[in-house]
């Protein structure tokens, strides 16, 4: 016999089932959201001599921190996979692809971007040489080229060998073949390579003569 009570109970069961049925996917979504949620952390970055405290998603690359959070748009996003070199910056003086490292990994380092190398009124000698020798066309790869070039000359001076060095034990010289090999991580779509090499060579020779 089904009395009203029984009916109520059964109706409530139906409602419960219904609620459970809709809650189940909601739970799954909530759990999904928990695992997919961005992890935000405080990151202290020292860039071009200034220290900044940033709240960043752990996924933020150094490149994105510079461009999107510090508005330093000199370092460019070309391939975002370490193949083109447009994002090259100096970390404690060493050239690095800023797209292939996380901002959170560099809290104890000093980062230098093209903005920290020189300004329009006080240009770095490498910037002056790129202008003089027309070492670019569209200019997109140029900040990375210049940061890389500055580091290349420092590496040669420090005696770091390259694939083009015929004698691993000899002192390193800024020859054309050395500069070409050492700059191979910076791609220029416009093909300004010969002028880029002229610019770097001029700075290298000035450095040698002074």
């Amino acid at each position: 016999m089904q009395g009203p009570g029984n009916f109520d109970l059964s109706r409530r069961d139906v409602l419960k089932l219904g609620a459970a049925a809709t809650a189940a996917p909601m739970m799954t979504k909530a759990q999904q959201a928990a695992t997919d949620a961005a992890v935000v952390t405080t990151v202290s970055l020292t860039v071009n001599g200034k220290t900044h405290a940033l709240k960043l998603d752990t996924r933020t690359t150094l490149l994105d921190a510079l461009r999107e959070h510090l508005q330093l748009t000199g370092p460019k996003k070309g391939c975002d996979h370490g193949q083109c070199g447009a994002c090259t910056v100096l970390i404690d003086g060493r050239r690095t692809n800023s797209c292939l490292t996380l901002a959170v990994m560099h809290q104890r380092h000093k980062v230098t971007t093209i903005e920290g190398l020189g300004t329009p009124t006080r240009m770095h000698p490498m910037q002056t040489a790129f202008l003089k020798h027309d070492g670019f066309q569209c200019g997109y790869c140029t900040p990375g080229q210049i940061c890389s070039a500055v580091a290349v000359l420092a590496e040669i001076k420090a005696g770091i060998p390259s694939h083009a060095s015929s004698d691993l034990m000899a002192s390193m010289q800024p020859t054309q073949s050395e500069i070409r090999e050492r700059m191979s991580g910076n791609i220029c779509r416009c093909g300004a390579y010969s002028n880029i090499i002229d610019a770097i060579t001029e700075v290298a020779q000035t450095k040698v003569s002074t």
Binding site: G85, R95, N97, T101, S148, E155, P161, L168
Partner: peptide, 21 residues
Amino acid sequence: REYPLLSRALLAGASGQLRNS
């Protein structure tokens, strides 16, 4: 000086930026 094969192999790989990291 003593393991030049290792230097040569490393220098044949990647780019200056990548080898720094």
